[in-house]
């Protein structure tokens, strides 16, 4: 069932050793929780970050034989595995050629099935997801940073957070990284997201290493910016490294 020429590009950071220590909890979001968010999910989990992923669409839509006949599935109800089996029965040749089978094969190795952002109950424990890649650290059902892969997904996430009314009082950085929806761009975008995650996590680690009393009442306060404050700076530096992945950011609330 391996696609002959559509293998997901392995990243250099593929299976690096677990550095241990403090880790930010990440969440990746795209429209269908299939391609871009799952690629980023995989790459972040390979780098040993706690990560969960979602889609903001109303339904999971995959390309079909023509543009008018997409394959449509329900979120939270259909597993990647069953989609894989269904599509390989329908037209193995077509779905191998357009890379869908390869993608679904990757996804079924990451987690059970696509989850919908709007149905996610933030803060409800996710212990039953223990077999998902990147599940270690996400048991509490929250994230510190949400990466969306497209502007309208960012919009959907922000609008949804407004709707929820921020009952958890927990700040969350929501960052959009614009990635085109194809396998190649998803792989590049995944690397970009991982790079950003590394930079953010370093800043968060530094903040935690600055152990001790909060001396913010003193003049030294300015010299020791906290993680939250450094996010725009980090994002600006990252944007210079990845000029083709335009980013938007806000500090929102769960």
């Amino acid at each position: 069932m391996e696609a002959p020429n559509g293998t997901v590009a392995p990243t250099q950071t593929g299976d690096r050793p677990d550095p241990g220590g403090y880790k930010l909890k990440f969440c990746t979001v795209c429209a269908s929780n299939q391609n871009r968010s799952m690629e980023a999910h995989l790459q972040l989990s390979k780098a040993h970050y706690p990560v969960i992923s979602f889609g903001t669409g109303s339904l999971v839509r995959l390309p079909g034989p023509t543009i008018q006949q997409p394959n449509v599935y329900q979120f939270n109800k259909t597993s990647y595995d069953s989609m894989f089996k269904e599509l390989s029965e329908k037209d193995e040749d077509l779905y191998t050629r357009n890379g869908l089978l390869n993608m679904l094969n990757r996804n079924r190795g990451v987690k059970w099935g696509p989850e919908r952002w709007q149905d996610w109950q933030v803060g409800i424990p996710r212990l039953e997801h223990a077999s998902d890649r990147g599940s270690v650290g996400t048991e509490g059902g929250v994230a510190d940073v949400v990466f969306t892969c497209e502007e309208r997904c960012w919009d959907a996430v922000i609008d949804d957070l407004h709707n929820r009314g921020a009952p958890l009082n927990r700040p969350v950085h929501v960052i959009n990284v614009d990635i085109r929806d194809n396998h190649e761009e998803a792989s590049i975008g995944g690397r970009g997201i991982l790079d950003l995650a590394d930079s953010l996590n370093n800043a968060a680690k530094e903040e935690r290493d600055a152990v001790g009393s909060a001396t913010f009442d003193m003049a030294t306060a300015a010299s020791r910016a906290t993680f939250d404050e450094r996010v725009p700076e980090i994002l600006g530096e990252w944007q210079e490294r990845w000029p083709n992945l335009p980013a938007t950011w806000t500090l929102a609330w769960f």
């Binding site: 559509g6 269908s32 299939q34 995959l62 709007q118």
Partner: peptide, 25 residues
């Protein structure tokens, strides 16, 4: 010919974010 790496996967319609949506469709 179709290149699996660069084929667009985005088959969503633009306005498919419906806050009041529930699954039965």
């Amino acid at each position: 010919p179709l290149d699996p790496d660069t084929t667009a996967l985005d088959v969503e319609d633009d306005d498919d974010y419906e806050p009041d949506y529930y699954a039965a469709e």
